[in-house]
């Protein structure tokens, strides 16, 4: 069974946690997330121009690059994470240019060697992800890495099949039309859209963007297979530096409790 299948196969929703690689003590921060109950880890690859991200993750990208983080460093964090946590799914999330810089084959090979389970590339839509030398999806699938796609409130039913074709691992439903870390969507809209997407796919659906508190996460978890939290964790990395792991552990434990018990009443 794949790591995704076991993480999403439990009789409770999954908590997906995002931090940016190279922003603080990445290994210690990742361990804190896992120990406090994160079911899936998304590790952000820093980029100079994170166009889909709000101020919190933008700053994390710049802090990481300012500290000299390279692609080799990101892959090393992944390799070491896999050695410490053999069963926790690990996703690399980022933008096209750093991923395809040395060619999609190179990246897919390196990610596979590092034990990565899935890749979210924000700015390669399905329309560009086939029949070209820099299409990433085919290279990832060939090496057993799941290309994880995003669906959004603007992805209508006519377009959804195209987004789902070739998607693996889980589907990431971006609950707001906007950038990361901003306002939260109305729960009714999330419920409706997740139900709509689940009619078209067997993949688990995780919901993210704008989820900051255990209360919000718990509410969403009643309707989705997973909940993604990013900006709130990244802000802790930015604010607490070396003290971040303890603070991350605190928030993640509360999020995990809310998500894991959401459907028990």
């Amino acid at each position: 069974m794949s790591r995704f299948a076991s993480a999403f196969g439990k009789p409770r929703p999954a908590l997906v946690c995002f931090i940016t690689a190279g922003d603080g003590d990445t290994a210690a921060n990742l361990d804190a997330l896992v120990e406090a109950g994160a079911d899936v880890i998304e590790l952000g690859m820093p980029f100079t121009d994170p166009m889909a991200d709000g101020p919190a993750i933008q700053s994390a990208n710049l802090r990481s690059l300012g500290a000299g983080t390279t692609t080799a460093d990101v892959l090393r964090y992944a390799t070491e994470f896999r050695a410490r946590h053999p069963n926790v799914p690990l996703v690399l999330m980022g933008y096209a240019n750093p991923m395809v810089r040395r060619g999609p084959e190179w990246f897919a090979e390196a990610a596979a060697a590092a034990g990565v389970d899935g890749v979210i590339c924000v700015d390669i839509p399905p329309e560009e992800d086939f029949d070209s030398p820099w299409a990433l999806g085919p290279a990832l699938r060939e090496r057993g890495i799941a290309p994880i796609r995003l669906a959004t409130p603007t992805t209508d039913s006519a377009r959804l099949p195209q987004v789902l074709a070739g998607s693996e691992g889980f589907l990431y439903y971006v609950s707001v039309a906007g950038i990361t870390g901003k306002q939260q969507a109305a729960i009714a809209s999330i419920k409706e859209n997740v139900a709509r997407i689940k009619q078209s796919t067997e993949l688990p659906v995780a919901v993210g963007f704008g989820v900051r508190t255990p209360e919000q996460a718990g509410e969403i978890a009643r309707h989705a297979d997973g909940v993604v939290v990013g900006s709130a964790l990244v802000e802790i990395c930015g604010a607490y530096g070396a003290e971040a792991p303890a603070k991350l552990r605190e928030l993640t434990a509360a999020l995990a409790h809310a998500v894991h018990t959401a459907r028990q009443d």
Binding site: M51, A52, A96, V122, D123, I124, P125, E127, E128, S132, P133, R149, L150, A151, T152, P153, T154, T155, D156, R159, V163, V174, A177, G178
Partner: peptide, 20 residues
């Protein structure tokens, strides 16, 4: 029709913008 000039151009945007 996909906006390609040879190997250049295209539509490399986040899913939120794609329908637009």
């Amino acid at each position: 029709e996909r906006g390609h000039f040879g190997q250049f151009g295209g539509r490399y945007v986040a899913e939120t913008l794609m329908p637009l």
